[in-house]
Design a binder for these strands. Structure first.
Lengths: 127, 127
DNA sequence: ATCGTATTCAACCGAACGGTTTCAGACGGG
DNA sequence: CCCGTCTGAAACCGTTCGGTTGAATACGAT
């Protein structure tokens, strides 16, 4: 739940290669070598990417002889959708409230409601 | 839809301040000054953050005299959930298939199925 | 024991990032 | 008209990031 951890997850997905790696891992676990194959970067670079994903909790590693297959940790999906849905709903609700308010208003003076939370110095402020 | 644009959205949310700004914008539009108030960084820094969010399509700006209120572009939520749900489902499906396959197997030889997509050189490889 | 493969560690490099300070422009209120 | 406020642009700074090369480690196969 820490909002800081969430931004780390987003950071982990903020790189096109990493994003694609996650997409492919949804299809099944894969080793570093396998993961590196489609991209024209070194396998060391992919290893680093994997470490980032691991650090964000997006991926976990196991062991199979020399290989260290990466496994998608699907719970992060829930964390993300949790955050997203929360604020999507919040935005929707706000919109609905504002909408019905405007609809029920006697015509003009709509500007006054355009920015409700603003500390705009409409009338006197630092008395 | 371009996978590249998605990673830019995630990049926009990869900073704790930006993430918080989005959360607050779900509550209503706000000016740079208002947005900057909670954090102990300069308003110029927040202006930069806003430009990043805008560049990713997360936020749009309007105009109100000197003020340029930021508005949350809620459609990005759909883009994100679209991607997330797709791969969550994919991972779940794979898990279910693997599960039923294991369940229906005559006991041993489970290792052989542990990494189906692997090009692992089990037997002879470079003949 | 040795060779080959898979992975990581370490040092390094240029570019991007987040931040600041300073300055300039736009606009409204008195 | 002019002052204060809000915002953006520019130059700069230290750190992080994505990438490389090169060497080290770990393990299986032969």
């Amino acid at each position: 739940m820490p909002a800081d951890a969430l931004s780390r997850v987003f950071a982990a997905l903020s790189d096109p290669i990493r994003l694609d790696m996650v997409a492919r891992l949804a299809d099944g676990d894969a080793t570093v070598k396998e993961l590196a194959e489609p991209y024209d970067v070194t396998v060391q670079a992919v290893s680093k990417h994997l470490r980032v994903l691991e650090g964000a909790g997006v991926v976990s590693r196991s062991r199979d002889a020399q290989r260290r297959p990466a496994h998608l940790e699907a719970q992060v999906f829930d964390v993300m959708t949790g955050w997203i849905e929360r604020y999507r709903r919040q935005a929707e609700d706000r919109y609905r409230r504002l909408d019905s308010l405007l609809r029920s208003m006697p015509d003009d003076e709509e500007q006054a409601v355009a920015a409700p939370a603003a500390d705009r110095p409409r009338k006197e402020e630092t008395p």
